[in-house]
């Protein structure tokens, strides 16, 4: 594993967004009962931060992310991104990377990256140019004309990240993006993501099951408890950047991972 010594900012942090989550709650109602999925969640994310949400299954971390994406409405509370509430998907402010690569198999890598721009009627030359840039950023510039079935799992997720970044949104939301990848690819993708993040300076909210991944990637780790989902801990990762593979075996790393694990074990 190469240490990321050569991380440079390719471009100034053009646009990074702030996120305010205030007293957000979510209640799912079925015909017989109502289940409280999220309870009084409040969180402030400063522009340019890499925040990771962890918690046991069913803690509502993905639900919270879907609310940030405007794909789901909260029952109570408000969510502001750059000071304005999120009521519907807003690709201007938010890019989303999903767990399943969810690329359209009938489009090439390039066309998949262009998709958000196509929806907005951006002309073809401009689309191509931006897609090329985004693919270059994720290290896939040679694969523009490939279809998803010709790409490996890691490459598909790179395309997915490029698609999330192509409109230069201030916030990038990632819902367990590497969950389906094998361990080695997952480590590499983590490093790649940190490089991309450093290059673009986006605010990233990242959901994962993996405690190691959480500590390795994050500026701040937000730990949630199981139903009703609430924030039980919010820790700042003090490890310097760039993060390296050697840190994984360090005491500081282990201490943080243990602290998160204790919360999760308690609530699971």
């Amino acid at each position: 594993m190469q240490p990321l010594a050569n991380v440079t900012r390719l471009q100034p942090a053009s646009r990074a967004g702030s996120i305010q989550i205030k007293n957000v709650g979510q209640v799912f109602k079925t015909s017989t009962q109502s289940v409280e999925a999220l309870s009084d969640v409040s969180l402030d994310v400063k522009p340019g931060k890499f925040v990771v949400l962890v918690g046991p299954s069913g803690c509502g971390k993905s639900t919270l992310l879907m609310m940030l994406a405007g794909l789901r409405k909260q029952t109570s509370g408000t969510i502001l991104i750059n000071g304005a509430p999120i009521v519907a998907p807003d690709p201007d402010r938010i890019g989303v990377v999903f767990q399943e690569p969810s690329l359209f198999p009938w489009l090439t890598a390039e066309e998949n990256v262009e998709f958000p721009l196509t929806l907005r009627g951006v002309d073809k030359a401009e689309r191509r140019r931006k897609a090329q840039e985004a693919l270059l950023l994720v290290g896939l510039d040679g694969f523009a004309k490939r279809h998803p079935h010709e790409l490996s799992g890691g490459m598909k997720q790179r395309v997915s990240i490029a698609r999330g970044l192509v409109q230069d949104p201030p916030v990038l939301l990632m819902d367990e993006p590497f969950a389906a990848l094998d361990e080695q690819t997952r480590m590499t993708m983590g490093d790649e993501l940190l490089r991309i993040w450093a290059a673009t300076g986006k605010t990233v909210v990242f959901v994962t099951h993996s405690l190691t991944e959480a500590v390795y990637l994050a500026d701040e780790v937000v730990v949630m408890s199981a139903r009703p989902g609430r924030i039980v801990d919010h820790l700042t990762v003090t490890l310097p950047r760039p993060r390296t593979y050697e840190m994984l075996s360090g005491d500081a790393f282990g201490a943080m991972r243990d602290r998160i694990w204790r919360h999760i074990r308690k609530s699971a």
């Binding site: 998907p89 690709p91 989303v96 999903f98 969810s102 359209f104 998709f115």
Partner: peptide, 28 residues
């Protein structure tokens, strides 16, 4: 797949765009 529809929605696709850019090619 529902994932395709979620992607389209998260990038602000209109109903017509979802029909022609997701449903149609996917079903073709």
């Amino acid at each position: 797949k529902t994932e395709y529809l979620t992607v389209a929605r998260s990038y602000g696709a209109t109903t017509a765009q979802t029909a022609f850019r997701v449903y149609l090619p996917s079903m073709l």
